[in-house]
Design a protein around this nucleic acid. Structure first.
Lengths: 339, 339
DNA sequence: AATTAGCACTCTTGAATCGAGAGTGCTAAC
DNA sequence: GTTAGCACTCTCGATTCAAGAGTGCTAATT
């Protein structure tokens, strides 16, 4: 895959221009705006070569060319220069996180996703913290009325989960607090994925006397472990409507419907192999999900505390401002992690 | 506004047919399918009258007619017959609420909104419980680590709110529990809107010693009173994409953007004057919100416990199956309230 | 050997035209 | 009061057409 310097320049020009105006770019345009000094005819020959090699596509015989997915890939891998965000924008981001006193993890994430989508005009996707990797911190049961209590679960990452449970009327306040402190002592410091079925079974046995009430407790524990583990947060879902490639209702519908299927989104974001700069770019079909065939995903992992806890990404059309998107993402994630 | 019986029949026919096929209905269709025995010409004359009176509209000279908003209004007020849901569907609804063990109010509402939108193919909007009207039940502060605690607030409607707050290190466990029980005793049984600024000020004075830490507590209280009070839950936001009247991206964008502005939605749902059957129907411009000019809203209030706590509605195109929508809404709300 | 000017060719796009079809309004007959 | 008949209007889709953009190829130029 060795391209002459000139071919690279031309490919870059096509990508740059197409990203900007969303219309096939012809040889004249390239000659006039990007490679002054060369005639359209020369450019034409080169572009014909690039097309043959698979980097460019002609929508029809007599239109300009647009980058193929292979073209974008090459651009992203070899041609793209890192964007240095204007100081102003950097400050905005830093300040955004500073001004707010966000404490709970969920609020932080929601806020981040809004910020990302408004900065880029793409849709932001954030895969929430892996509960499994965070450590159990504290469990408390707080009586609410005669029959019910509120079970509260806190992890060291600031993740809070609560649920109303039934309490047997026969249970005295004393017994309750004994049970709670017993559970706390058993679970303390364990990461959530260490709280296995075995351990839960063991506890169940120890406390068999109160089994009925504990069922609810254990259910919550199990839910927290499984179902809720990979929560996905979205921001700016309507931004795609501004992209000219989504003038077709059917496409819009497909994407918006996808946005409601969080399990699919979670799969999309799962386990990116983070590269040099820490950012992974998935272009079009590289995404393995039919619905985002025409989209690209720019993503990275993020940490809260020391552990990698989740993935954070921006989804836009393949015709995306890759460099700027990467820069924004890096800046936001770095600010986020300083919290 | 007195219409002859025949005019009423014709208006009903036009509405019925247009709702079904989403295309202007002509005199022939009415004569053949709805008022057999009369000739198209007769129907034509009547339809011309109805148009002059403002109940029908002709999109262009040579198309059939469609109902105007006034036409829909008349239909809804005087012509529409109550739909009796098929037993099957009724059972589905009852079972849906029965099967689940939903305890927390938020889960119940979320589930209801999904149910409504999937039953009707419209978008469901639910205005959450008014915190102000619900009674304060319990407040608890649970230490999480050296610097932080989790403040949990429960109301009698099962509404739970929590927040991480900073605790001064100087505060002993004993003092903390004294403060908590003091606050509980002061606030117990009050409805939230009785917890006025005055009362909070009073408490602030009594506990001036711990002011710093209490600031957070009071902030949460105030937030719960104000900001979060009118939370809106949405279901089936993409359903509108299936309606032929939303083939235009601009319209879709306008609506979806509206769906993200919860304060506007809350205004839309606020304080409906509930009529005889308990259901209010707002057609098109009656809604006062530019974005839903072409939509109708079928809504009612709902109770949890004894008090009216919120509004629940279905938003669809003006060309809506009003009768069926009303029936579904009533059935769902009644099942919901039995919980 | 690489570049470029020139030119014929292809394809899209938007406007204009046309005919079919649907539905109307009006008139005159029933 | 109802209806048959008919001319008229308007939309919609297909077709045509010219303009414009861009190409590929050839031959001339550097």
């Amino acid at each position: 895959m060795n391209l002459s310097a000139r071919k690279k320049e031309i490919l870059r020009a096509v990508v740059t221009d197409y990203v900007k105006v969303a219309q096939p770019v012809g040889s004249r345009t390239v000659a006039r705006r990007y490679l002054v000094g060369l005639s359209p005819a020369t450019i034409r020959n080169e572009m014909a070569d690039l097309e043959e090699m698979g980097y460019l596509i002609q929508p029809h015989t007599s239109a300009g060319r647009i980058p193929s997915q292979k073209g974008y890939r090459f651009y992203v891998d070899e041609l793209m220069e890192a964007t240095d965000l204007p100081e102003k924008e950097k400050k905005t981001i830093k300040k955004a996180f500073h001004d707010r006193k966000l404490r709970e993890i969920e609020d932080i994430i929601k806020y981040t996703s809004r910020l990302l989508s408004s900065l880029t005009n793409y849709t932001s996707l954030i895969l929430g913290p892996r509960l499994k990797k965070s450590a159990f911190k504290k469990l408390q049961i707080m009586p609410v009325d005669a029959q019910r209590g509120l079970l509260v679960l806190v992890t060291d990452t600031g993740f809070v989960k609560n649920k109303l449970i039934n309490l047997p009327q026969t249970l005295s306040a004393n017994e309750l607090s004994r049970i709670v402190s017993y559970l706390n002592s058993k679970l303390k410091g364990l990461t959530v994925n260490k709280i296995t079925a075995t351990l839960i079974g063991e506890l169940r046995r120890d406390l068999y006397y109160h089994v009925k009430f504990l069922e609810d407790t254990f259910t919550l524990l199990e839910e927290s472990l499984a179902e809720d583990e990979r929560r996905v947060f979205l921001g700016g879902t309507t931004n795609i409507l501004n992209q000219p490639e989504f003038g077709d209702i059917e496409k819009v519908k497909a994407l918006l419907t996808l946005f409601e299927q969080h399990s699919l989104l979670a799969a999309l974001l799962a386990r990116p192999v983070v590269g040099v700069e820490g950012v992974v770019i998935k272009i079009g079909r590289e995404n393995l999900l039919e619905e985002v065939r025409d989209c690209s995903l720019v993503m990275t992992t993020y940490c809260l505390g020391r552990e990698v806890v989740g993935t954070i990404g921006l989804l836009g059309p393949t015709r995306m401002e890759y460099s700027k998107t990467v820069a924004v993402l890096q800046q936001v994630v770095s600010s986020l992690q300083k919290l």
